[in-house]
Design a protein around this nucleic acid. Sequence first.
DNA 1: AGTTAGATTTGATTCAGGTCAAAATCCTGA
DNA 2: TCAGGATTTTGACCTGAATCAAATCTAACT
Lengths: 237, 237
Amino acid sequence: MSKFNQVSCGNCGLDNICLPRGLSQQEINSISEVVKAKKTLQRGEFLYHEGDNFRGILAIKSGSAKLVACDQHGNEHILNILLPGELLGFDGLSDEKHSCAAIALETTSFCLLPADSMEELFQNVPSMTRELFRHSGEKMVEDKNQLILSKRPAEERLAYFLISLSERLKRRGFSASEFKLSLSRQEIGNHLGLALETVSRLLKKFQDDGLILVQNRFITIINLQALRNLLQLSDSD
Amino acid sequence: MSKFNQVSCGNCGLDNICLPRGLSQQEINSISEVVKAKKTLQRGEFLYHEGDNFRGILAIKSGSAKLVACDQHGNEHILNILLPGELLGFDGLSDEKHSCAAIALETTSFCLLPADSMEELFQNVPSMTRELFRHSGEKMVEDKNQLILSKRPAEERLAYFLISLSERLKRRGFSASEFKLSLSRQEIGNHLGLALETVSRLLKKFQDDGLILVQNRFITIINLQALRNLLQLSDSD
DNA sequence: AGTTAGATTTGATTCAGGTCAAAATCCTGA
DNA sequence: TCAGGATTTTGACCTGAATCAAATCTAACT
């Protein structure tokens, strides 16, 4: 359970994918001064709980996390998966309370841009504010895509899920074609709005069709184009 | 097609529900200087198109609009409905291009907070920046709710849709129990991921159960509590 | 290595909601 | 006011994916 310790954002290996994208050295310094880095958690530990006071925007440095919200029935819904270099915590921006929980899916480290330094930052580093809005806009575009996806058949949802993981891992410098799912079939199903049996059957089908190779939670993407085609071919409305 | 003309945000009837919530007079003046007000559109006209350059955040003054995105197949998806006092345009924040279109559902007027004055505003009115983030966070919480809802059965989706409309209209000073849908059954179905026939059948069912009264597109909510209960009772996962 | 709880696969069955088709209603413009 | 198109309702039928139920498999811990 390491304590926060100071590390310059400029020296961080994530500097190209995390917040300080296209900022001047001076601006990066301003950010580094206030960013708290970095804390490490084990699988299952919470980055924050639903209802927690908003303490700032977090950035995943390594590992992964899931955003989980509970509905009225107490059912959990996995809203999103966060990979290294991705930001989270925006769900606390509106009313100072987090509207969902963030839970580590494996050993995971992260940084914190504290809430109480944000206003100061808005004034000193306006382009950084712009950058934060950009990220927040990206989140919304992602949400939009998920919303559209939620109306599509099971096959497309799972295909999109795999492609999206692959692309995001690639952008972060990991292999786009081989990766380990940090989610169970149950969790994938929950995230995509499918029964776990459906997830299992479809993974099998994708394998039988030569699109992917499934070894427990290890996925190898064999035919990315064919996988992509699943998103293009079908029709509706 | 009226031209933009200057009206102080402080004098606007929407000032409590739109942006300037809890800002000082001086801060409101700063905003008023840059906000362009107001333009009027007819049903079917675009506030902005998908792919348009981001020109700023818009606020609906009167009327209503829908956010529409096209997927790979060219199918339209109604992502959201915007009512008076609500902000839109956040989908253009991430990459300067709007990722969906905004279309007037009836005669609709709106204001514009121009993009090119935003950075200036970030510096001069930091609490306003905070306010914008708050709004943006609210949008995400809404998206979250919609995402959770998209996994629930048809009945709950429609119930939520009606309740949400009712609550939002109420907050804006309109009747919470009687309102006219500015969407066709087709559009409601599209928005909720249901067939238009299903929407029609469920509206009938709600009426038969004494929850609402349906007269073409006029809805009267008769038993709000019972409608709410639909969201509470059922189980899943 | 053996035990066991959890995760995954596989098969059989069911059902919510989609699709298709047709009738009824509404609405607009001549 | 009427005609014609769009919207909505209603009914019959079908299908994708959920549910239920077992049989495997896996990984962690003695």
